[in-house]
Design a protein around this nucleic acid. Sequence first.
RNA 1: CGGGGCGUAGCGAAGCCUGGUAUCGCGCGGCCUUUGGGUGGCCGAGACCCCCGGUUCGAAUCCGGGCGCCCCGACCA
Length: 428
Amino acid sequence: MTRLSEYLLPTEKEAPADAEAISHKLMVRAGLIRQMGAGIWTWLPAGWRVHERVVEIVRAEIEAIGGQEMLMPVLQPAEPWRRTGRLEIEELFKLNDRKGSELVLAMTHEEAVTFHAAQIINSYRDLPLILFHVQVKERDEPRPRAGVLRTREFVMKDSYSFDRDPAGLEQSYALHVGAYDRIMERTGLRYYRVESDVGMMGGLGAHEYMAPCAAGEDEIALGGGYAANVEVALRSPEVERVGEGLRRDGELLTVEPAIEIGNIFKLGTRYSEPLGANYLDEHGAERPIWMGSYGLGPARVVAAAVEQFADDHGISWPRALAPFAVHLVALGRPGTPERDAADRIYEDLRAGGVDVLYDDRERAAGEKFADAELLGCPLRLTVGRRTLESGEVEVQVRRGRAEAPSLPLTGEGADLVRRVDELWQSVP
RNA sequence: CGGGGCGUAGCGAAGCCUGGUAUCGCGCGGCCUUUGGGUGGCCGAGACCCCCGGUUCGAAUCCGGGCGCCCCGACCA
């Protein structure tokens, strides 16, 4: 059901008064998300479609490197967290059940997955292994901000690799680097993979996938094939501060704000040791499992896409993330020939498998155009009186608001679908 | 956790200083009008003025306490 007259897309002319970031303003205005509390957000139908587009890409690429999807709980006993020393983390939500038992709301799932690994993985024959899930995380953030950019509850894809030794971990890590590179390429975002800090995860090494944009909370240093989190860059001996900027081996680095989309860590035995996740090798010796942890926040991909491609008129989705491929605008009233033509085109597109949002509302033309550009679907088709006069359906490519060659009104529906598909291939 | 700001209708705001129970725009409902860039007109509905307490004949307004939200910084995915 994607007739706008029946679809929940609460667009607003004005952004929330307190919104600052572009993605915050536009995602609310476009009817994608609504706020319930500080850092607590609901995804409305169109927004959730975008979110799930990201999840589908991520799922496909993690499965492609052998990842097996599962689902671990958000509500967890506190004990494993105590054993890894993470029960003390302030951002961790803690609670008690009616019996007084200590529980936590998971902020990530190393404890859970390692808890299971300790029970289930016994032999070198069980390794290597990659597990992942797409699950809600809870973090008692000191300062949620910028809409969906930093929230207290958010969906994350996290995968975990299990290997016999450091060499195995390197391989699993490399697989994830490949998968993450492909994920980022497929989303259409501008991004950088940078060396990063291990932070609260602990472990041996880490990279972050950063999407440059104005609302970014982090800073990345770039230049001559080098890319690093600024904090990390400043720790290395060859990098020095030069006024506002940085210099590395004599070469100036540019510094850009960026959103952290994902991060990957070589955990080593940081979790397997305290939680007793061991295996027996060929010689019957007990050894700790070498682990890796790989996170990615779909909501941040969505927000970064809004930030990177928005213009004065609204959002402009890369086609991989768009809630709909085609935003079909009918200008005629019900009962008019131009409206009949629009209805027919809608049915043809739908029958042809095109993801189409049909604006069949009785609204002024300007409002419909404005809403279409705010929502940001890659292609806009307009059917009005002019369409009947000229025999052509006008097409606007959202990126750049560029006029594309019109499509013939007459002919087989399949022909229209084919032409729309061709156009689709040409948009960014 | 430090600093700043803000809570009045679904959204955005005015009123608060100088107390007399509420105003505007958008949106929403009805009728008419208009139909290629947020058309125009008439009518209408919609507000425990964030909460609790105090002062007062009377509190959106003054005082005290609380809660909530946003922004900057610190921290963090």
